[in-house]
Design a protein around this nucleic acid. Structure first.
Length: 226
DNA sequence: GCATTAACCACAG
DNA sequence: CTGTGGTTAATGC
């Protein structure tokens, strides 16, 4: 699909700083693709030949661990999906899979590099973006490794509610098994934890994975004391 | 010891 | 893929 970068409403903060001639270059070096739920956008172990930008949708970033699959984070549009995997090495160190229908722009690596060399403001935005996600990751991984399971689950639900969906009611974007891979726990333990939270009246979870947070105050407490 | 936490196994829906 | 029950190893009081 032919992109229309000039008038794109989903430009990244960095791309907003590109000059008109650079936008033209971007347009000529960018391909827009739709992915449906469950489709792989790029796969661990394959060559990373493009910059991948998520302009719509929700994506999970995941990699194979010694035991099994590990979900590293969820990315909501707008976001670059593969900067570390593209600049850090020639092969992808992780995979990206669409969780909802998604729209992705593949940008030629050379064009993107040239923007970084020639446009300092652009480069600065990219660095900020990378730093913010590194800080968020540091926070998440220390919390993950030091909180007990109830705290990890509570934190995850609060994150969904506060940042991802900005609502107290939402549909769980991942299966229980995936949630377990996300918080580094067994699927059985996660399942039990949800039962427990329901039993205590803190959440309500229907069979079609619609979740409502009834007692956010309790979740906050569990997340903190985790 | 005794209690708690969470993984592993098995089996049913 | 989920949910539950039984069992078990590790850890803390």
């Amino acid at each position: 699909m032919k992109p229309d970068c000039k008038f794109c409403k989903m430009k990244s903060p960095a791309a907003e700083l590109l000059k008109p001639d650079e936008i033209d270059t971007l347009e000529q070096n960018c391909a827009q693709v739709k992915f449906s739920k469950g489709e792989t956008i790029f796969r661990e172990g394959t060559f990373a030949t493009n910059i991948v930008y998520l302009r719509a949708g929700l994506v999970k970033i995941h990699m194979k661990g010694p035991i099994g699959e590990k979900i590293l984070r969820l990315n909501k549009a707008p976001a670059y999906l593969g900067l570390p995997t593209t600049f850090g090495d020639r092969v992808n160190h992780y995979s990206a899979t669409a969780i909802t229908e998604s729209e992705v722009c593949f940008i030629s690596l050379d064009a993107f590099k040239n923007f970084i060399y020639s446009n300092g403001n652009f480069a600065y935005e990219i660095i900020m973006d990378l730093c913010r996600s590194e800080l968020a990751d540091f926070q998440r991984f220390t919390n993950l490794s030091q909180k007990q399971l109830p705290g990890r689950i509570a934190e995850l639900l609060l994150c969904f509610s506060n940042h991802l969906f900005k609502s107290n009611a939402f549909e769980l974007p991942l299966s229980i098994t995936e949630l377990a891979n996300f918080v580094s726990a067994s699927r059985e333990s996660v399942s039990r934890q949800f039962s427990e939270l329901s039993r205590l009246g803190i959440i309500e979870l229907t069979h079609d994975k619609k979740l409502t947070i009834l007692r956010k105050d309790m979740l906050d407490k569990i997340s903190t004391n985790g």
